[in-house]
Simulated scan of single mutants.
Amino acid sequence: MNANTIAAAIRKEIATGQHPYGSRLPTVRELAEQYGVSQQTAASAYSVLAALGLVRTDRRSGTTVTAGRQADAHLGHFTPPDLGAEGAQAWRPTSGGDAAEETTLVRQITATDDMNAWGIPEGSSVVERTRIRSVDGAPVQHKLTVLPYTLAARTPEGYDGIPPMLAPVGAAPVRPPHGVRMADWLGWDVAGTEVVITTEPMDKAAADALGVPEGTPAFRIVGISRDGEGQTVVVTVTTAPLHHRVTLNITG
């Protein structure tokens, strides 16, 4: 048995929750005895898992699980020209568990140079929102939302509260009526959404939020919604460790 085979077995156990987030795995010696291999092979298996961001090895604390059970970065039910069909789910646990979502940052900033690639002019006023999604207390997704301030400040007709996209950290989430897309509720005139999925090293913000080293490989899902004139309405950047899944339902 080689290191990749052992790593694959442990990865499956992490994905199904047999090794919960934060738990300690067997020592290298114990792992070698369990699989009947050399300690070098056992150590290599842990190196493979560490490279995927699934574990962290420390001389004093040993090898600790840094990932939760598998979850979906679910893009919803795709009905052209948008991803916001009734019944769409932004994400969901793959194998059950207590799912939670927390807003950790809401701020108004000046658009940076790298936002030009999303169609957001550098120097314009935008709002950034960050959410962390968890299953059984283990962080599984980091989601950044960026949109022009003028659109973020909109309120639905007949709504008297804080603009939903400006609700501060700690406030209860404001959701549209059942069967209504947030974009339609806020009058954003979304004509289409482009989604680009790549595997890339995590940036520092996502890595810190998910409890893994910066640069850990991950899914990076960038969704850019535009109006009928091609202007960017909202951008979402979802980061998920590679042992999770990215799914989509085609309904029309």
Rank of each mutant, 00 (worst) to 15 (best):
A183C: 06
L25V: 02
G22W: 02
R220W: 13
L147V: 12
G97N: 05
G223Y: 07
N4T: 13
V190A: 13
I221D: 06
M202W: 00
G161C: 03
H178E: 13
R226N: 06
R181C: 14
Q39V: 05
D184A: 07
W91Q: 11
A50W: 04
R181Q: 15
E157G: 11
L25E: 00
G119V: 03
Q40V: 08
T79F: 15
H142L: 12
G22A: 07
A205I: 11
M202V: 01
A32L: 01
R56L: 14
R92I: 15
D136T: 01
T193H: 03
G179E: 05
G252M: 12
A85C: 10
E101V: 14
L151W: 08
R181G: 15
P173Y: 08
P156G: 08
E86V: 05
V106Q: 06
A45L: 01
A117H: 02
G252T: 13
P177V: 08
A15L: 04
R226Y: 03
Y149H: 14
I221V: 10
G170Q: 02
D113R: 01
A117W: 00
Y46T: 00
G215Q: 08
Y159W: 11
I6W: 02
A7H: 03
W185R: 07
V174W: 05
T63L: 04
E128F: 09
T79C: 15
G76K: 04
S124E: 07
G179S: 04
L49T: 00
P201T: 02
L151P: 06
T104A: 09
M115A: 10
A43C: 06
H142W: 15
